[in-house]
């Protein structure tokens, strides 16, 4: 026991020594490296997106993002699968929280539309200001989480979530293929007009892809939250009742 602690502390000490050298000798570059400089110089004429991070995520590194969304989908599917195979002991099924009070319930009913609106704003302005599909999806999932907290019985159906998830995933692939057909390659967003730099509807297909990613990520997070919230047993209980 204690020898193990000492061993771990020693190993981590070695790692810390390596980190120390990395950090102490670190000197920031004076200028951007060539890749970043290229991205900064060509944001306006290639993607039309003032937010370079969104431009990189959706256009220049779009394939990585597609892969990442797939990984997230696999995660949510595996979480649901892992939890579906085990049942709660008799009499212990049901939510882990006590029922909410009236004030929280009313507050949730008032806040949910606002959170959804803010999520839509974050998604739609992803190419102009901080935000984009991933952030907006997280905000939307936070709305779902608030609904679960205030009214544990208030759930969006798993079937609906799965449908939103698969339709937006399919749409993402189709937009990518449209880039292959009408522009220079897979996931090239320039097949739609770039529009006026800095306007809401501009930057080619970037807002469209943002919306699809936002819906997909939001649905995946919501699936994870609901799987952890209910599990299989409580749903069966409802069916029986």
């Amino acid at each position: 026991m204690s020898t193990r602690h000492i061993l771990i502390a020693g190993l981590l000490g070695l790692l810390g020594l390596a980190f120390w050298h990395l950090a102490a000798d670190y000197l920031p570059d004076a200028a951007l490296n060539p890749t970043a400089a290229y991205y900064a110089a060509h944001a306006a004429d290639q993607t039309g997106a003032p937010n370079l991070v969104t431009g990189i995520i959706i256009t220049w590194r779009g394939l990585d993002t597609l892969g990442e969304v797939t990984v997230l989908f696999l995660t949510s599917a595996i979480v649901a699968l892992v939890l579906a195979q085990s049942k709660a002991p008799a009499g212990a099924a049901g939510p882990g929280f006590l029922p909410a009070g009236e004030l929280l319930a009313t507050g949730t009913r008032m806040l949910l539309p606002l959170i959804a609106l803010f999520g839509a704003y974050v998604i739609a302005n992803g190419h102009l200001s901080p935000g984009g599909g991933f952030q907006g999806g997280a905000v939307l999932a936070s709305g779902v989480l608030l609904a679960l907290l205030a009214q544990p019985r208030m759930r969006i159906g798993h079937a609906l979530l799965a449908r939103v998830e698969s339709v937006s995933g399919l749409g993402y692939i189709l937009v990518g293929l449209a880039g292959l057909a009408f522009a220079s390659g897979f996931l090239d967003t320039a097949f739609l007009p770039l529009g006026r730099f800095g306007a809401l509807l501009s930057a080619g297909a970037i807002p469209l892809i943002s919306v699809l990613i936002g819906l997909k990520v939001g649905a995946e997070f919501a699936t994870i939250l609901q799987s952890l919230e209910e599990g299989e047993d409580a749903a069966q209980e409802e069916d029986a009742a």
Binding site: R109, M110, P113, A116, M154, A199, L200, L201
Partner: peptide
């Protein structure tokens, strides 16, 4: 939120607000 009166912003707002008001029937506002 958008701080602009451009027509495309207004149209997007119309669509999004209508969608939320339709999808969240239990929603309340001040």
């Amino acid at each position: 939120l958008n701080g602009s009166l451009a027509p495309d912003v207004f149209l997007a707002g119309l669509a999004i607000s209508a969608a939320i008001a339709f999808l969240l029937p239990g929603g309340l506002s001040v």
